[in-house]
Amino acid sequence: MARGDQVEVAAVGAHDAGGGAPMARDSIFRVASMGPVPAPVIREFWRYAADA
């Protein structure tokens, strides 16, 4: 979530579907979608991920 110059990053979910270990902020995972993902969304995701 971003507002102005402030960015809030939260890791939510689990590493597996069974609810095992919690997702960490620096976890690596594949982004999958049922439909097309607009390029600006992907660009913002990688921009914030690089700043983490």
Rank of each mutant, 00 (worst) to 15 (best):
residue 1 M to K: 07
residue 1 M to D: 14
residue 1 M to C: 03
residue 2 A to K: 14
residue 3 R to I: 04
residue 3 R to H: 06
residue 3 R to D: 11
residue 3 R to L: 09
residue 4 G to L: 00
residue 4 G to H: 02
residue 4 G to Y: 14
residue 4 G to C: 07
residue 4 G to T: 06
residue 5 D to P: 04
residue 6 Q to M: 11
residue 6 Q to L: 07
residue 6 Q to K: 01
residue 6 Q to D: 04
residue 6 Q to P: 10
residue 6 Q to F: 03
residue 7 V to M: 15
residue 7 V to P: 03
residue 8 E to R: 12
residue 8 E to F: 08
residue 9 V to G: 15
residue 9 V to N: 00
residue 9 V to S: 00
residue 10 A to F: 15
residue 10 A to M: 09
residue 10 A to T: 12
residue 10 A to R: 08
residue 11 A to T: 01
residue 11 A to E: 01
residue 11 A to C: 00
residue 11 A to P: 00
residue 12 V to C: 03
residue 12 V to P: 09
residue 12 V to R: 15
residue 12 V to D: 15
residue 14 A to N: 11
residue 14 A to L: 12
residue 15 H to M: 10
residue 15 H to V: 09
residue 15 H to R: 12
residue 15 H to L: 10
residue 16 D to K: 11
residue 16 D to V: 14
residue 16 D to A: 15
residue 17 A to F: 04
residue 17 A to K: 13
residue 18 G to C: 02
residue 18 G to T: 01
residue 18 G to H: 14
residue 18 G to E: 06
residue 19 G to P: 02
residue 19 G to V: 13
residue 21 A to M: 05
residue 22 P to E: 12
residue 22 P to R: 05
residue 23 M to D: 07
residue 23 M to F: 05
residue 24 A to L: 08
residue 24 A to C: 03
residue 24 A to K: 00
residue 26 D to C: 01
residue 26 D to R: 03
residue 26 D to A: 05
residue 27 S to T: 00
residue 28 I to A: 02
residue 28 I to P: 00
residue 28 I to D: 01
residue 29 F to H: 14
residue 29 F to E: 15
residue 29 F to A: 02
residue 29 F to K: 13
residue 31 V to I: 13
residue 31 V to M: 11
residue 31 V to Y: 06
residue 31 V to A: 05
residue 31 V to G: 08
residue 32 A to L: 11
residue 33 S to P: 10
residue 33 S to R: 06
residue 33 S to A: 11
residue 33 S to N: 11
residue 33 S to T: 06
residue 34 M to Q: 12
residue 34 M to R: 04
residue 35 G to F: 05
residue 35 G to Y: 02
residue 35 G to L: 03
residue 36 P to F: 14
residue 36 P to I: 03
residue 36 P to G: 08
residue 36 P to E: 14
residue 36 P to W: 11
residue 37 V to G: 02
residue 37 V to K: 11
residue 37 V to L: 12
residue 37 V to T: 04
residue 37 V to Y: 12
residue 38 P to N: 09
residue 38 P to H: 08
residue 38 P to E: 12
residue 38 P to K: 14
residue 39 A to C: 00
residue 39 A to W: 02
residue 39 A to Y: 13
residue 40 P to I: 13
residue 40 P to D: 07
residue 40 P to K: 14
residue 41 V to T: 06
residue 41 V to W: 11
residue 41 V to P: 02
residue 42 I to H: 12
residue 42 I to K: 08
residue 42 I to L: 11
residue 43 R to C: 09
residue 44 E to K: 00
residue 44 E to L: 10
residue 44 E to H: 13
residue 44 E to D: 01
residue 44 E to M: 04
residue 45 F to G: 11
residue 45 F to Y: 06
residue 46 W to F: 07
residue 46 W to E: 09
residue 46 W to K: 09
residue 47 R to N: 08
residue 47 R to F: 06
residue 48 Y to L: 04
residue 48 Y to C: 02
residue 49 A to G: 13
residue 49 A to D: 04
residue 49 A to C: 01
residue 49 A to W: 10
residue 49 A to E: 07
residue 49 A to L: 09
residue 50 A to G: 09
residue 50 A to Y: 05
residue 51 D to R: 07
residue 51 D to N: 12
residue 51 D to E: 15
residue 51 D to Q: 07
residue 52 A to N: 00
residue 52 A to T: 00
residue 52 A to R: 00
